[in-house]
Design a protein around this nucleic acid. Structure first.
Lengths: 84, 84
DNA sequence: CCATTATTTAGATATTTGTCTAAATAACTA
DNA sequence: TAGTTATTTAGACAAATATCTAAATAATGG
């Protein structure tokens, strides 16, 4: 939960999630969408994965990342609880 | 939006919101609920207010804080968009 | 007006974070 | 096997953050 909030607290990471909503992408493809070096993007992807917001799968020499929205349900529930 | 995510990215601030869900509280009352000094809590309240997650009103020598959940709707909508 | 109480502001400090470059690892291909 | 491409790891550094103590501000009550 803590890790999810932390992962969401960054514009670049939120945009990565938005990209992955459209389609699965390799680390390199994701990096190309930003003006940030590949190691930095790799770090962001690591944080997103730690939060379970993305999953990754090695396909040949590529690592394909996918969005995982199931943890967002917890955040939604947290917000709903706060509102009621 | 950025400020809301930032404000939510802290355990203490999330607990403050939970407290304020139950009832409005003065800055001092809130501080007493934590093992943190009053200036630190004051700083957290400032960040929450910047994010529009709480409002404050001066009543005599006290400052009463209240929860404001309207901005949480934006977060909810952001999550829903990501999920659909 | 002075002392007390409530809260915030200022300034310092240690930790965390986002970014970079350089190097390491892993997989394909000629 | 050697060279190329894809990604991550390691290490450094500047900026942001959470916390503290001390001082300032504001309101109350004798």
């Amino acid at each position: 939960m803590n890790k999810v909030f932390k992962a969401l607290n960054d514009q670049t990471r939120r945009e990565i999630l938005k990209l992955l909503k459209e389609k699965d992408m390799s680390a390199g493809e994701i990096a190309e969408a930003f003006n940030i070096t590949k190691p930095s993007i790799s770090h962001h992807l690591d944080l997103l994965q730690q939060a379970d917001l993305v999953t990754s799968e090695k396909r040949g020499q590529f690592v394909i990342y996918s969005l995982n929205t199931t943890v967002l349900d917890d955040i939604m529930q947290w917000i709903i609880t706060l509102k009621e």
